[in-house]
Amino acid sequence: MVTADLWDVAAEVTDPEMPMLTLADLGVLRAVERDGGRIVATITPTYAGCPALDAMAADLRSTLGAYGEVEVKVTLTPPWTTDLISDEGRRKLAEAGVAPPAHIGPRSTGPVPLALAAPPKRVTCPRCGSAETEELSRFGPTACTALRRCRACAEPFEHMKDI
């Protein structure tokens, strides 16, 4: 199997905690290469402590294992941000009831100011589309989500934190 096809195979592996997203949608699959007889897949963690990384690596080894010996490498650079989630990934998140992150754009290289009086984040409800939502918890069931509630339809939902 040629390298380009191997990428397609690896790209279909799903995230263990966000199974509606493939590793490619999430933007964590960096490269799939042939190194002699071996297949080397390179991924990057979302959060430094993301426990799903181990499961992603195991799933990649299992899926690509049909085509040869697999090595999974992890790279930290450039660091992952939610800006790397594809448009397709954002659509799938919203469909699954998870509000996608906002685009952050280029990151400042200077100090990060502490904004105590920052205006509340505007997040649209993935179910009814209302912008009238509020934060329930800054941290959610996975490292990458926060919990919110819609004031219009009263449904709670997860929001993928912009980071």
Partner: peptide, 24 residues
């Protein structure tokens, strides 16, 4: 050191989020 630089680049947004949580 490339490792320190890479760890730091990942840590910055995470720590900023933690600081905001605690400050709140």
């Amino acid at each position: 050191d490339p490792v320190l630089a890479a760890v730091a680049a990942k840590a910055v947004p995470e720590l900023a989020y933690q600081r905001e949580y605690a400050a709140g």
